[in-house]
């Protein structure tokens, strides 16, 4: 899922300063799971802004949609949005952008920083696991992503800076390539990293549009009708 962290209150206040009626829009999916922008966090932020002397005089209300990265759910706001002179989105960067596109006459501000694609280790503890490079190498690397979890994103590690089992950048950061080595050795699959992994085909260097086969089938069927 997408992991995000709420922005500091002073930064959020700087965005909404001067607006009189602001709707805080929560998102019920990823950011709700990672405790950054779900309905509960939207209410907390609304209360904080309402009670703060810095934003005194302005009215803050909240509403949480199922998903902000989907027009179908944004349409639920069509009538209500017109009552506000600014929207404060607690969704990830994708959600903020779609909300801003849907309500392009109203200023839309982000209330969270989108951090990464990660996993839920425990309530409140999330780890980055994927950088969406577009060329997945997990089959080779024992299900441990070197692009994300190696600080240098090496394809042929571990580098000489590995610190026993941790990364040179921090003792608490495990060395991804050490883990890859150990897991492959335990599975008797070291042979697959004996070969040189060639330079990566970075497919995340331009905006991507993903079209699944089902979409093609559906649209061509509609055209035929």
């Amino acid at each position: 899922m997408i992991i995000a962290e709420r922005k500091p209150i002073p930064e959020i206040q700087s965005f909404v300063a001067g607006y009189h009626k602001v709707l805080v829009v929560g998102c019920g999916t990823c950011v709700a799971v990672c405790l950054a922008g779900g309905s509960k966090e939207a209410e907390i932020l609304t209360n904080e802004l309402t009670l703060s002397p810095k934003t005194a005089g302005a009215r803050f209300e909240s509403r949480t949609l199922e998903r902000q990265c989907d027009m179908e759910f944004l349409s639920e706001l069509d009538e209500q949005a017109a009552e506000y002179d600014a929207l404060l989105s607690m969704a990830c960067g994708a959600g903020v952008q779609l909300l801003a596109e849907r309500f392009s006459r109203i200023p839309v501000f982000p209330a969270v920083n989108t951090s990464c694609i990660g996993v839920n280790r425990s309530v409140g503890w999330y780890e980055e696991n994927c950088r969406a490079c577009g060329t997945c190498v997990l089959a080779l690397t024992a299900g441990i992503c070197p692009v994300t979890r190696c600080a240098k994103g090496l394809f042929n590690g571990p580098c000489g800076g590995t610190n026993i089992t941790s990364c040179e950048i921090h003792p608490d950061q495990p060395c991804a390539w050490h883990m890859i080595y150990e897991r492959l050795a335990a599975q008797d699959r070291l042979q697959q990293i004996m070969e040189i992994s060639p330079a990566n085909d970075w497919r995340n260097q331009q905006p991507r549009t993903i079209v699944q086969p089902g979409y093609e089938e559906r649209t061509s069927a509609l055209k035929e009708q």
Binding site: A151, K152, G153, L154, F155, N156, G157, C159, I196, S197, P198, A199, N200, W202
Partner: peptide, 12 residues
């Protein structure tokens, strides 16, 4: 950090 390629890929 760029790390477009790694040291082994650079050698190649």
């Amino acid at each position: 950090g760029v790390f477009d390629i790694d040291s082994i890929q650079l050698l190649a």
